[in-house]
Amino acid sequence: MGGIATHHTGQNMANRPLSPHLQIWKWGPHMLVSILHRVSGDGMAIVGLGVLLWWLGALASGPAAYETFHTVMTTPIGYLVLVGLTWAFFTHLCSGLRHFVLDTGAGYELDANRMWSIASVTGAVVLTVAFWAAIFLL
């Protein structure tokens, strides 16, 4: 740096273009699937594992505690949480399987990347609907 440039102030640093530039990037399915992977994964880590422990704890505590869990989970809000968690699970599953393919070095061509990104997101919705249809119809 020496005599060429003066030290950057915080103001100047803040004015530099930063990446990612969410406001000006053109959104694509690959960005959506990446963000959904993180949101669904961390959502399940915080909410899903909590529900899992409540379920196991209620079972281990006996019929009365299980009845409380069952009652709460069959309210409209309970169903919203459970449907949200199954959507998060299938989303994270599909995008996770996509990551396994990407880990091998395959699927980075623009068309293939776009196609599998869209397939991950839509496939998760289809699986979520299929799961709840099976719960209520079978």
Partner: peptide, 23 residues
């Protein structure tokens, strides 16, 4: 904490199935 709680609950369910007197 979460892992140990989950494992304990499963162990209790598997090893003490009638401890609560439930059906």
């Amino acid at each position: 904490g979460g892992t140990v709680f989950g494992l304990f609950c499963i162990a209790r369910l598997a090893l003490v199935p009638v401890a609560t007197g439930g059906a």
